[in-house]
């Protein structure tokens, strides 16, 4: 029995299909990440797992308990953090924590060890109303409240959205610690660097799963060699790479029947992907048949001398963008 088993989960809002036939499992004590653009269906999926909504089709089972028929028992084992801060802003930090402890039939004292590393950081402000906390502190409080009843699974819907970089890093360190306590965690995030810290990642888009794998496998599943091209004039570099591809693409936009020059330095199928800007470089794939030097030469001849190119390990983003294009 896995911690979470989802079979053919489907959900609709009116005519819009939010989730389309999703099946996956999450193991005990696994840190399982979902990444995908806004509107991909992550929140809907998490709300189903949190027993808040019933899926229109399929079933989800947590620790052997169906989320629809056994929701009452299940709720004792779920810690849920919605995407939006949803604690009482007019109650103090301590009152909020005490509130959630009491309605779960426990006390702060009983499970203090579990929340201690997190709660200790906000304890100096325990008499402050939750609405007056900073974003990072609010989130630590929300996590403490979700943990106070010692849940077996944590469901965290974009917990770090809108939180500063330092707090984000701290937050993920806490998740790793909680994983050590044997708590299963499913988490969604728009940040690719956070996804790398998960045991496994599911890529989700338009309500369908594009793939599930460990971060490393996902990066290696890219299949082609990926290069980062840099040049001081990044905008012109991007344009030059784009036009280079367009000129060489198998179906030129001009629809001209003129035969291409046979002495073209690069083969027609050179670029499988259009170049994508990433930070200060442009990522590009080139097939085995040509070398990176030829690309630099081609750039130099189109007025961009001094471009640098180096092979890089594909990031999750690269794979994600590639998978998205295949879908389209």
């Amino acid at each position: 029995m896995e911690a979470l088993e989802a079979y053919n989960i489907t959900h609709r809002y009116g005519r819009v299909t939010a989730l389309d036939d999703l099946s996956f499992t999450v193991g005990h004590g696994e840190l399982f990440g979902f990444i995908g653009p806004d509107g991909a269906g992550k929140t809907t999926l998490f709300r189903i797992a949190a027993t808040l909504i019933m899926p229109a089709g399929g079933r989800m089972i947590l620790f052997g308990l169906n989320t629809v028929s056994r929701y009452r028992e299940l709720r004792n084992h779920i810690g849920y953090m919605p995407g939006r801060f949803s604690l009482y802003t007019d109650l103090t930090v301590e009152e909020n924590l005490n509130f959630y402890a009491t309605i779960f039939g426990t006390t702060i004292k009983e499970n203090y060890h579990l929340i201690e590393p997190i709660y200790r950081q906000i304890e100096p402000f325990k008499k402050r109303q939750a609405g007056r906390l900073s974003g990072g502190m609010k989130q630590k409080l929300a996590l403490s409240c979700a943990l106070i009843h010692k849940p077996r699974i944590l469901i965290l819907d974009e917990p770090t959205t809108g939180v500063d970089a330092v707090s984000r890093t701290e937050f993920w360190e806490m998740l790793t610690q909680l994983k050590g306590e044997g708590i299963t965690i499913i988490v969604s995030t728009p940040y690719m660097d956070e996804a790398l810290r998960c045991d496994r990642i599911a890529l989700i888009q338009n309500g369908t799963l594009l793939g599930i794998n460990t971060p490393d496998s996902i990066r290696h599943s890219y299949g082609k060699k990926l290069y980062a091209v840099t040049h001081p004039d990044r905008y012109r570099l991007l344009l030059a790479l784009r036009s280079l591809i367009q000129a060489l693409s198998p179906e030129p936009l001009s629809h001209s029947h003129e035969p291409r020059a046979t002495d073209a330095p690069l083969s027609v199928s050179a670029f499988g992907l259009s170049p994508e800007p990433f930070g200060d470089s442009v990522h590009i794939t080139i097939p085995e048949s040509i070398t990176s030097g030829e690309v630099v030469a081609a750039l130099a001849s189109s007025g961009l001398p001094g471009a640098e190119i180096r092979e890089i390990l594909p990031g999750i983003e690269d794979v994600f963008l590639e998978l998205m294009k295949k879908e389209v």
Binding site: Y80, P82, S86, Y100
Partner: peptide, 12 residues
Amino acid sequence: IGTIEQINVTPV
């Protein structure tokens, strides 16, 4: 304000 979401997941 969304607090009902959090309450609904509890055994209340």
